[in-house]
């Protein structure tokens, strides 16, 4: 029995030491490569979290990323603008990003682009949050928000390798590759025009969709943080080509939450009707983004003038 226990002890000691060593060294290599990336959404997030000092910041998912032409807005306002939008992300990600940069450099104005179904429950909204993992061990603000969505992470945060889970190839490929994204301050234009016919939905469903209270709380915290740091907040819903002849139940949750936080929602969802300005039903193309960004800049100017 003693021999077996001795072997067990030796096995654990050697295996755990080797495992921790590999985890640490590989984690460091991955971290270095991750920070070296110059291309893609990860590189843009890296830059924004670690170095950006813009006065106006755009937050949101794909509709923010493709709709807000940073340069057009910057030229119109005479301020530096960065588009921190990221596809598929939700309010948890936006809050984490804001909290992650606010101590280093609080922006003057924040534009938060919300989707109509921003607060509707979906496990996918949590899955994509792994994009925040590479910053969790170095940025306390981001870590705090990430733990809200995934409390079990605290048991795994010892690993230096886990933050790079499912991004090995992108990290290796883009970390080693030279080159840079064309600098349009985070904005990504979509080339192409929507070709299909528009379908007008007459039935939006009567039953209310399940609302995720974590997402709603994150929105309230986002507003609270802006108020605490004296950041001007401009909440928008950006243009779409799809049309509804009914009230979408998911939209009411957004309006309700905004009302509760005493924030106005600027609904631009139907301000653009020209098919040639759209890439698909939900996204503007490059030309559309230009038109919309000019409209938004004018609204921002008007708001700051009235304030």
């Amino acid at each position: 029995m003693k021999v077996h226990l001795y072997k067990l002890f030796r096995f654990f000691l050697i295996a755990i030491t080797i495992l921790l060593l590999i985890d640490f060294s590989l984690g460091k290599v991955m971290g270095t490569l991750y920070n070296r990336m110059n291309v893609g959404e990860k590189a843009r997030a890296n830059y924004f979290i670690r170095r950006d000092t813009s006065s106006v910041v755009i937050f949101g998912s794909s509709r923010a990323l493709y709709h807000y032409h940073s340069k057009v807005i910057a030229d119109s306002l005479g301020l530096s603008v960065y588009n921190a939008g990221r596809s598929n992300q939700s309010i948890i990600y936006h809050l984490a990003l804001l909290q992650g940069i606010v101590e280093r450099h609080p922006p003057k104005t924040v534009v938060l682009d919300l989707k109509e179904d921003e607060f509707v429950k979906s496990p996918y909204k949590y899955e994509v949050l792994s994009a925040l993992l590479p910053y969790c061990n170095t940025n306390e603000g981001i870590r705090e928000i990430y733990l809200r969505a995934n409390p079990n992470y605290k048991y795994w945060s010892w690993s230096h390798l886990l933050p790079y889970n499912s991004s090995v190839f992108a990290t290796l490929y883009r970390g080693l590759k030279r080159g840079k994204d064309k600098d349009i301050r985070g904005f990504m234009p979509l080339d192409g025009t929507f070709k299909d016919e528009r379908k007008i939905s007459k039935n939006c469903g009567t039953s209310s969709l399940p609302i995720d209270t974590v997402l709603v709380t994150c929105f309230h915290d986002f507003v609270k943080l802006c108020k605490e740091k004296n950041i001007e907040l401009f909440v928008t819903i950006s243009p779409r080509y799809s049309r509804y002849e009914c009230v979408r139940p998911e939209l009411s949750s957004v309006l309700e939450a905004a009302q509760k936080s005493n924030v106005a929602v600027h609904d631009f969802s139907e301000v653009i009707d020209d098919k040639t300005l759209f890439y698909d039903l939900w996204h503007l193309n490059k030309k559309g983004a230009l038109v919309y960004s000019q409209k938004l800049a004018a609204e921002l100017k008007l708001k700051s003038a009235t304030d």
Partner: peptide
């Protein structure tokens, strides 16, 4: 065999789907 086990654990950490 032990090296293989460690390799699999590293693969799980780097490539595993945890949800």
């Amino acid at each position: 065999n032990n090296a293989y086990m460690i390799f699999l654990i590293i693969c799980i950490i780097l490539l595993g789907v945890f949800d």
